[in-house]
Structures are given as C-alpha cells and as structure tokens.
Design a protein around this nucleic acid. Sequence first.
DNA 1: CTCCCGATAT
DNA 2: ATATCAGGAG
Length: 219
Amino acid sequence: MLTKKQIEYVLETMGEMFPNAECELTHSNPFELTIAVVLSAQCTDALVNKVTPHLFDKYKEPEDYIQAPLEELEQDIRKIGLFRSKAKNIKKLCQSLIEDYGGEIPTEKSELVKLAGVGRKTANVVASVAFGEPAIAVDTHVERVSKRLGICKWKDSVLEVEKTLMRKIPMEEWSDTHHRMIFFGRYHCKAQSPQCPECPLLEVCREGKKRMKKRGVVV
DNA sequence: CTCCCGATAT
DNA sequence: ATATCAGGAG
C-alpha cells in the first residue's frame, strides 16, 4: 500500500500530466449534466457526447422528456446502448424532478441518489461538477487506477475505494483528484493496454512493476 | 448476481 | 470475429 507521501507524489504527477483534467461530458446546466451522466453509465463519455447535442437541442426541460413517446426517446439515445432502461429512467427521473423537486436538480447527494438511474457514482459527479461539492466519484477508471497503483486493496469494493480515497486525500483536493485520476486512467493507465513503460509513476506502482517484471524488464 | 446493449479495441 | 468497455436496477 502506498504511503500518504507517495500518494501526494502520485497526485502531483497526475496533475502535471493532465493539468486541464475536467468533466468531459458536454453540458450547459445541472439538468443536462445529470442526463449526460445517467447516459454515461457503462458507456464512454465520448459516445455520450455524440448523442447529447441533438438530445439537448430537442429536450430542454424535464417536461420535454415526459411528453415524448418512450419509443422516440429510446431512438434518440439508441447509440448509447442499454437504451431501453436508460430511456425509462430518464422519464422517471424527470417525473420526480417535477413532482418532488420543483423541476430542479437537487444539490444534496442523498436526494440525487433517489432519482431513477442515479447511483452513487452519478450522484457524486453531479454534486461535484454541477454544485462544487467535495466528492470523489469512483468510476471504473478511478477504481482501476487506485488498485493498480496500490492506493487501495484489489478486493476493495467501489464504496471502500471511495472511502479510502476520502480518508487519504485532503477534502479540498477531492474534485481535482477525481478528474486527474479519470484522465490518467482513460488516456494513460488504460484498461486494455496500460502505458507502463512510459509511466512516470512506474517506480511507485505495484501493478506496473509486476507487469514490467513479467516482460523481463528491470525497473 | 443477472440483465441491460451498442461501439470500439484487438 | 470477438473480447472488452462502461453503472444501476431489480
């Protein structure tokens, strides 16, 4: 496991690698962001961004999603995959926005998770990106990077990863850390082909050193 | 734990 | 051609 000092170094290095890391989902208000994050479940942000320009042009308010026939909404988001469940969730989500939240996205995580299609990860993204709340959304990238580096244990659940990160990282750095780890995971420490040989974190990375050894490279 | 599903990397 | 990617609901 990495020490606090090592984690500091890791975050600093990621910051140097990706100084402009931020949410990559196209959106112009909390409502659009929420829809985009719901769509992004089990799907890349890049793909979501291909669908949302048309979607946000056509559906401005919760009412617009409610009024559209389900089949039409499904077709509008079909490229995303899992489109039937997501279309249903979005309709439900908009319904409760109107009924329970005055048509606005709630700012509290505890309220966000009550919305259809919004789980812990999505709630954290919305709270953090839309409302500036300190949060670390543990998506697949954050989880993979944390585990490969040795910030947490391999068998930790997503929730345990989140708790560990919150424990080991000062709160004012949660938001930046979250985005840096996502960029690091998405563009460098990739799921299929991690760029270990060129990684500036190789010397502190548990998994990286193991992979190098496997290939007979001395690090 | 299984189902939901299309896009993209290999 | 097919393995892998990417969260939440039931």
